[in-house]
């Protein structure tokens, strides 16, 4: 089971030494979750919740204080794990003295991909950098650097994409382009761990989500189970010419419909109540503070 999961995190803890080194500040506390093959997992949490720390542990950039991590069945940072993942960092910044084409050419060569210039140019066009191939990245805006970083992450069609707020700072049209690329990659078979503060985006494209607060997992589940946290139905009925709306617990639904009909009301709509992801997020992360 573990070997087939793109990401498996078990009881992960990470603490940092304070400035004087006398105390340790816990950033992650016994965090456990997994990413299933072929899914897009939303990785949510307020600032300082431990999302980037977790991702850096997954990438082998940070050493866990305790706990276990498996990336594509390998140790994080090992050649086996590195070979099959693409990473889009938050605020990406490659060496800006390079052009994006040089960057991709060198990264492809480092990874041993036999990518011709046409393939690399097509990749740059796919992320919206057509016409900018030969421009040094020091002239790029933040959004263009993010596009270059996305192209770098997509090199070699990795089977696992780790994306740390890839669309932060992008305009709505660019966000849509990024989302479309993520969905295309996912339909190709790539598994994606997506950290984002743009909850509508996560709600749209992720099949599951985990929510962190203060280094702990506070909620986890499929998107439908997370959003249907209120086990109630909303009934809309027309009673004597006026519209009545009521939220009814599932167990009382049938009896309430019967009573409304008995009193001469016409049932207009019965629908399950769903929360927005923002409401779920605020409830989950707020509950942790207490």
């Amino acid at each position: 089971m573990a070997a087939s999961l793109p990401i498996l995190v078990e009881e992960l803890s990470k603490s940092y030494p304070s400035r004087m080194g006398l105390r340790r500040f816990p950033a992650l506390k016994n965090l456990s979750f997994h990413l299933e093959a072929g899914e897009i997992l939303g990785f949510l949490g307020p600032n300082g919740a431990g999302k980037t720390t977790t991702m850096k542990c997954l990438l082998g950039l940070l050493k866990p204080t305790s706990g276990g991590i498996s990336v594509m069945g390998h140790r994080p940072g090992s050649s086996g794990a590195r070979a099959c993942l693409g990473y889009v960092p938050e605020n990406p910044d490659y060496d800006d003295s390079l052009t994006p084409l040089e960057l991709l050419r060198l990264l492809a060569a480092m990874r041993g991909f036999d990518s011709g210039e046409r393939v690399l140019k097509a990749l740059l066009a796919r992320v919206g950098l057509a016409g900018w191939e030969q421009t040094r990245m020091k002239r790029f805006s933040k959004g263009m650097k993010q596009r270059a970083a996305l192209a770098a992450a997509l090199l070699g069609s990795p089977s696992l994409l780790i994306m740390d707020e890839p669309t932060g700072g992008l305009d709505p049209a660019a966000r849509k382009e990024f989302r479309d690329i993520m969905l295309e990659e996912n339909s190709r078979g790539a598994s994606i761990l997506l950290s984002s503060h743009i909850l509508s985006e996560v709600e749209t494209i992720c099949s599951r989500a985990v929510i962190l607060a203060r280094g702990r997992l506070v909620r986890e589940g499929s998107m439908s189970s997370l959003l249907s946290i209120e086990d109630t139905y909303r009934i809309r009925a027309s009673c004597s010419g006026s519209l009545v709306e009521e939220d009814i617990p599932t167990g009382e639904l049938q009896s309430r419909i019967d009573s409304l009909r008995a009193s001469g009301c016409e049932i207009v709509e019965v629908a399950r109540n769903y929360a927005t992801l923002e409401e779920v997020f605020l409830a989950a992360t707020g509950s942790d503070s207490g």
């Binding site: 082998g60 590195r82 910044d93």
Partner: peptide
């Protein structure tokens, strides 16, 4: 500081 090292060390290079 510029985080150039992170994506390089995350995927292509040890």
């Amino acid at each position: 500081e510029t985080r150039i090292a992170f994506p390089i060390l995350a995927a292509p290079l040890s």
